[in-house]
C-alpha cells in the first residue's frame, strides 16, 4: 500500500528544511483542491505532504499604495475576494478568484496552489500575468523572483526546484486610471474549467492607452503573456478598431488543442471574443477611476 506522511510546519524555515530533506517525494499542500483529486486519481503520488497553511509568510495579505499588493501563496481565495483593497484596486483578480470551482472550493483554494498546479487553464494565472505579478520563491539556499508568465513550463510542471517553495506574490500598485479584467468561457455557469480565459490590465492617460498587458489561458501548454497584443495598444485610444487589432494579435499566439472542452478552431475564435470583451471592460473601469 502507498503510505503518506503529513507534516504541518509552523515556520518558513521548518518548511524549507523539510522540503530539502524530502526532495521530489514531497509535495506542498495548500487547499488541496487539485492535489487531493490528483492523488485519488493516481496522477500524483507524493510520499510526504507538507501543509503550507500554517506558515505565517504564506498567509500574508497586505496592500499599500506605494508597494502594491502582497498575497501569501496559501491565502484562501475567499479572503482575497472579500478584501476591500483588493476589490477596489484589482477587480480582475477578484473576478478570476471568484470563478474557481464553487463557493466551497474558494474557501480552500489559493493563488499559489492555482499557479503551482501548473494547469494551462488556471483562472487566476492570466489575471496575475495581466497585473505584472511577480513570484517570490524561497529554498534553504536563498530566495529568487520569477515573473508569473515565466513560472509554468509545461502542463503540471513549474520552474520550482524540488527544494523550493512559492512564498508570495507581489503585485504593483495600480497607476491612476488603470484597471484590470478577467473573463473565461465555460459551457455551463459554474463548476467548470475554462475553455478559454483572458486577462487584461490597461492604464489610460486621457484617451490614450499608456500601458496594456493581455494574457491567455487554456490555449497553449502554459498560460500565455500576449506581449505584442498589449503593446499594440500603447499610445493609441482604446476603441473598437484598436481593440479588434489587439484581439487579432492575441489570437495569433494561441495554439489551442481540440478536446472534450472545445475545438481548437472554437478556442481560437473565443480568444478574439474574450480579448475584445475584457479590454472593453478594463477600459471602461479605467475611465471611471
Amino acid at each position: 500500500m502507498h503510505a503518506i506522511t503529513y507534516e504541518s510546519p509552523k515556520s518558513l524555515a521548518q518548511a524549507l528544511s523539510l522540503l530539502s530533506a524530502t526532495g521530489e517525494k514531497g509535495r506542498l499542500l495548500a487547499g488541496g483542491t487539485d492535489l487531493l483529486i490528483q492523488m485519488r486519481a493516481g496522477v500524483r503520488k507524493p510520499e510526504q505532504l507538507i501543509d503550507a497553511k500554517s506558515i505565517p509568510e504564506l498567509q500574508v495579505l497586505s496592500f499599500n499604495s506605494q508597494d502594491g499588493l502582497r498575497v501569501g501563496a496559501a491565502v484562501p481565495c475567499c479572503r482575497l475576494i472579500e478584501d476591500p483593497a483588493v476589490r477596489q484596486h484589482y477587480p480582475g483578480l477578484v473576478e478570476a478568484a471568484g470563478l474557481i470551482g464553487s463557493v466551497q472550493i474558494q474557501s480552500r483554494c489559493s493563488l499559489g496552489g492555482n499557479l503551482c498546479n501548473g494547469s494551462p487553464a488556471a483562472d487566476t494565472t492570466p489575471a496575475l500575468i495581466a497585473l505584472g505579478a511577480v513570484c517570490h520563491v524561497a529554498s534553504s539556499k536563498g530566495t529568487r523572483t520569477v515573473a508569473v508568465e515565466d513560472f509554468v513550463v509545461s502542463p503540471g510542471r513549474t520552474v520550482l526546484q524540488a527544494d523550493e517553495l512559492l512564498v508570495e506574490f507581489r503585485i504593483p500598485a495600480p497607476k491612476p486610471h488603470s484597471a484590470d479584467c478577467y473573463q473565461r468561457f465555460i459551457p455551463r455557469n459554474e463548476m467548470d474549467i475554462a475553455v478559454v480565459g483572458v486577462g487584461a490590465a490597461v492604464t489610460l492617460n486621457g484617451d490614450t492607452c499608456t500601458a496594456a498587458r493581455i494574457s491567455l489561458g487554456a490555449v497553449a501548454p502554459t498560460p500565455l503573456f500576449a506581449k505584442e497584443a498589449g503593446a499594440s495598444l500603447v499610445g493609441k485610444p482604446l476603441n473598437e478598431s484598436t481593440i479588434a487589432a489587439a484581439a487579432a494579435l492575441a489570437q495569433q499566439i494561441a495554439v489551442p488543442i481540440t478536446d472534450m472542452r472545445g475545438t481548437a478552431e472554437y478556442r481560437k475564435h473565443m480568444v478574439g471574443v474574450l480579448t475584445r470583451r475584457v479590454l472593453t471592460t478594463a477600459a471602461e473601469r479605467a475611465r471611471a477611476k
Binding site: 455551463r188 463548476m191 474549467i193 478536446d259 472534450m260
Partner: peptide
C-alpha cells in the same frame, strides 16, 4: 475522455 462530472456536463442549478 470525459468519464467524470467535470467534463460530462450536466446542468447545475445555475
Amino acid at each position: 475522455r470525459n468519464a467524470g462530472f467535470l467534463d460530462y456536463r450536466m446542468p447545475t442549478c445555475l
